[in-house]
């Protein structure tokens, strides 16, 4: 790593102030994406503002029809949270398949959504559930938040404070792991609330996480069979040494059906 100054922020305001004052400053959440990148010398912030001391940013609560998760809440806490398990059990399950146990002790939801890695799991949940990303400045709908590969609607000096997930009637997440990295090769999150269903795909889009609108429209009834005739075009789908676009496109269909089955408490 290149040298940098480390500052542990104690409040969100202080962190925001540091971020706007110091041009070369970056935020440190769990560090599980940023630090490996810095170790490879692919990122060189002059200042790292650590959010782990901002206690307001951590915690899980049910607020009306939503589950609200503080940005610095680690995946492991979401996975085992009684609140999440009661309200959106599938969100807890999604958190439990991010990385490995040690990564889940450290990695945070805020870091995940702010980084918007195209193979991350949380962005799929955010899109499928129609989550709201609450920052120190405003609230942004997930549909408007994830704007491209590692790109979000976050502006300079803006910090993710919490994510609010409306409680769906049903949700399912199916992930096919990259055999090497264990990130999502394809992950599909399906959620149903009332008469609408939302389908979000991670790991596969060449522009990052996306909603599969054709699948959403295909749900005559909310069951895997509704998706059977649907095929995803490989156009716009990622290809790499692990999976070319054709295979990934195929997996999107398989994972969408499996996620739907899971949402219904079935195995496919």
């Amino acid at each position: 790593m290149y040298a940098f100054d480390y500052i542990k922020a104690t409040s969100l305001d202080q962190a925001a102030k540091l971020l706007s004052e110091k041009e070369e400053a970056k935020l440190l959440a769990g560090g599980h994406t940023l630090l490996p990148t810095m170790k490879q010398r692919l990122a060189a912030p002059g200042v790292l503002v650590d959010l782990s001391g901002v206690s307001d940013l951590r915690g899980i609560a049910r607020e009306g029809d939503a589950v609200v998760i503080g940005a610095m809440t680690p995946h492991g806490e979401v996975a085992t949270s009684a609140v999440v398990r009661a309200a959106i059990p599938s969100l807890a399950e999604l958190a439990s398949v991010i990385g490995d146990p040690a990564v889940r002790h450290r990695g945070t939801i805020g870091g995940s959504v702010a980084n918007n890695d195209p193979a991350a799991d949380y962005p799929a949940a955010c899109l499928a559930l129609g989550a709201t990303i609450v920052t120190n400045k405003r609230s942004v709908a997930a549909d408007d938040f994830f704007t491209g590969l590692f790109e979000t609607a976050l502006e300079d000096g803006e910090i993710v404070a919490k994510v609010s997930f409306p409680i769906p009637d049903k949700m399912g997440y199916a992930k096919f792991r990259n055999p090497a990295s264990r990130y999502a090769l394809v992950g599909v999150c399906v959620a149903q609330k009332g008469s609408t269903a939302r389908v979000a795909v991670t790991g596969a889009g060449s522009n990052g996480v996306f909603r599969w609108k054709e699948a959403e429209a295909a749900f005559a009834t909310f069951d895997p069979a509704s998706l059977e005739k649907l095929t995803m075009s490989p156009a716009g789908i990622n290809g790499d040494i692990h999976a070319d676009a054709e295979y990934r496109a195929h997996l999107i269909g398989v994972m969408a059906r499996r996620a739907t089955a899971k949402a219904l408490g079935k195995r496919l």
């Binding site: 490995d100 002790h105 450290r106």
Partner: peptide, 28 residues
């Protein structure tokens, strides 16, 4: 170098963490 092998695992406040992906100063 990529926080995958786990040879560096230690417990911080009772929880397993990869010490190769944790800043020392963050553990004050």
């Amino acid at each position: 170098d990529t926080s995958q092998c786990g040879a560096c695992l230690v417990h911080i406040d009772g929880k397993a963490v990869k010490s190769c992906t944790t800043l020392a100063l963050a553990c004050a």
